[in-house]
Nucleic acid binder design. Structure first.
Lengths: 144, 144
DNA sequence: AGACACCCTGTAGTAACTTCAGGGTCAAGT
DNA sequence: ACTTGACCCTGAAGTTACTACAGGGTGTCT
């Protein structure tokens, strides 16, 4: 049994060692076997699980979403409609965030345009505009 | 001297009381005067500063960016090129993030499309695809 | 006095990491 | 055997921008 060390896994997946440990600590990734020296020893199955998690993260899925998918994987005979639902929900969120950012960009570009020539800070149209009554804040949407 | 209480300000700007306190605690907003009962008492100038901060936040600007703008405002005779630079930098980041999310969306939609009919979880194309070797992770960009 | 709405401070939690501190293991070289 | 350097380990704390909680005070009206 020659498992892989955490550093090998980290290099293979281009993912920091600390992140792998973090995933284990938060329960996203199960704890692997240990060597006599107390080093983590990852099986291929473990590596596969990390791959799954990293793929999901690359798609900006939250840990919660990933957990749900991992749970669904534990019931192989169930229908995959729930999987679809999660992906679709996530798609909706990403679309929503794109929309928000586009709106935001419009506001920023309008702001940038308001300054059409160099002047003193005290006459800066950008700062003046920012000084007006605050609109309701956009805040942070659930998807980043 | 009849200043405004924090709750009035919060309602006026549609911003939580805790957030205003948070801004004060982190130094973004200066501490206001106090009543005999130790209640915060905000002047109009203070309200204006909060408006400024909230406007910036609505544009998804970071506290760091806002601090820089606030610093620039303290030097009214300086040229406003630095203000422009911050806005432009921020615009670039927002554009970058939009691009990232669009890419992400493409991947998600491809994933969603891979499941074209109901099947068991064990045969789910989505989960299979997620199980493949992880690509380098997109990670979190500086702008959300 | 009691009730209610609001205020206060300090702490801790959220999400997803990342860094730091301090110490152990392993393998190769001297 | 000792040294060195790369890697490993754990636990705690930091990052960002909030938000919630706990426990207590203030002000107004009945």
């Amino acid at each position: 049994m020659a498992g892989q060390q955490i550093g090998e896994l980290a290099r293979r997946f281009e993912c920091p060692v600390e992140t792998i440990r973090y995933y284990e600590r938060t329960g996203l990734l199960p704890a692997p076997a240990r060597t006599n020296g107390n080093y983590r020893s990852y099986s291929d199955e473990h590596a596969g699980q990390l791959a799954f998690i990293l793929n999901c993260r690359a798609l900006d899925m939250t840990h919660r979403e990933i957990r749900t998918l991992l749970d669904l994987r534990r019931k192989p005979k169930n229908g995959c409609s729930d999987v679809n639902a999660i992906i679709e929900g996530h798609i909706g969120q990403v679309r929503h965030r794109i929309g928000e950012l586009k709106q935001l960009l419009t506001g920023l570009e309008a702001l940038r345009t308001s300054c059409n020539q160099p002047r003193a800070v005290e006459d800066c149209q950008i700062l003046s505009a920012l000084h007006r009554n605050a609109r309701p804040r956009a805040g942070r949407a659930p998807v980043r």
